[in-house]
Design a protein around this nucleic acid. Structure first.
Lengths: 224, 224
DNA sequence: ATTATACAACTTGTATACTAGAATTCAATT
DNA sequence: AATTGAATTCTAGTATACAAGTTGTATAAT
């Protein structure tokens, strides 16, 4: 377990959730590995209660497998789940991109562009998570602009299925391409070209879809 | 609180979640009312722990408002949330209806038709919840057929925003129209007419959209 | 009368103790 | 030696005790 710094005014439960999610996405908590409420709790300096709350939440989207009275594990990568998660994200994000064409004001466009500028600065920060954080912020802003922030919050957990595959594919998808996608997308929104925005978003999200078989070859022990 | 019967092998937490959800949708736990973990726990014959787990889950989709160290309430109806929930359901259900046109086998169609037959039997059971249960099963089957059952599970909670408005509108939307929508939809799926299926689903879900203003006039105390 | 302060009665957050069930281990018995 | 069975040791589920924070009220001081 890689421990994170506890934020000010963050409750134990929130801290536990954030930490466990981060470790699942980074594969520090490897697919297939067994976890224990007691062990996680003592590692994080908490009691079982807040840890348990976090695990229950993650089990709702099958990113943690709680077997009552037996054990809990981090599930192996199930491509059906990855596909469901991709399906959901793709549909919602494409629709949001279309909405953004109507709803984005000049200030919104400026904020998006500023985020892209930062993305360029952190292009090569594979492991610090800075680039991923910016990428998440970018997509979150698109939902906010379309007044769909609750939808964005809801797909965060199920997206972990997608995100940990993305972690494995890190070296294969060039960040420069991702940033160029973002640039093109903001251009389309600025032009209010809904069709282009939708298509660009779809293409963007499909970048991670390419090498499922290749990943399975490199990390066979992580797949179902 | 209207108490439900506890199912066999149902954990306390699951029972609490099911009971509380049911009471929110039925407006038994009225919008704006204050709730207490202790009170709910003693009413259901449980301790705070499983009740608390249920409330935390519902608070994630803002259908319960937990104000730390202060109080918890059932939020007033927020039409922005209703709209987000409708947006999400509509997009996903329409896409699923399209997929169903490719994926439904004859047995699936038979199961859907059987469900519709039952809907006709319970047409007038407004308050028993039988009709609503069948309606939910029908929509759940459409997701199952498209291999998107996890997506369906995920939108259940946020749909409560939509569902409790539907409860208020019960008398205004005729069940016969709903059943006819279902019949038409299954027909389209049988014909593998994806465009028709998508359009029928959109029309179907929009039936509840009509009288937001009217509802606000009848139940002003429930709205933000 | 008004303001300030202290206290009581709530709330949720967390820790811990206890219960129940499953798996494993090891010893006793066949 | 193989098998059964009891004890141990895991697990998660639940109940409860306690901590910490907020609100409202009552009392005291101005």
């Amino acid at each position: 377990m890689k421990l994170l710094e506890r934020l000010p005014r963050e409750s134990g439960g929130e801290y536990a959730l954030r930490t466990i999610k981060e470790n699942i996405v980074s594969l520090e908590l490897a697919p297939g590995s067994q976890i224990s409420e007691n062990e996680l709790a003592s590692e994080m300096g908490l009691s079982r209660t807040p840890v348990r709350e976090a695990l229950i939440e993650l089990s709702k989207v099958k990113i943690v497998d709680i077997q009552p009275q037996k054990k809990s594990t981090i599930p192996l990568i199930d491509y059906d789940m990855v596909e469901e998660s991709r399906f959901m994200r793709s549909l919602l994000e494409c629709a949001v991109a279309e909405l953004d064409c109507q709803m984005a004001c000049p200030e919104d466009l400026e904020r998006l562009s500023e985020n892209i500028r930062l993305q360029n600065l952190y292009l090569d920060e594979f492991y610090s998570g800075q680039f991923v954080t910016l990428d998440n912020q970018f997509h979150g802003m698109l939902f906010d602009i379309a007044k769909k922030s609750q939808v964005y919050a809801l797909i965060q957990n199920i997206s972990i299925h997608f995100d940990r595959v993305r972690t494995m594919a890190l070296s294969s998808v060039k960040n420069t391409k991702i940033v160029q996608d973002h640039v093109d997308l903001v251009d389309a929104i600025r032009r209010k070209d809904a069709k282009a925005a939708q298509e660009l978003m779809e293409k963007h999200l499909n970048r991670y879809d390419i090498d499922a078989a290749a990943l399975r070859a490199v990390y066979p022990q992580y797949f179902k």
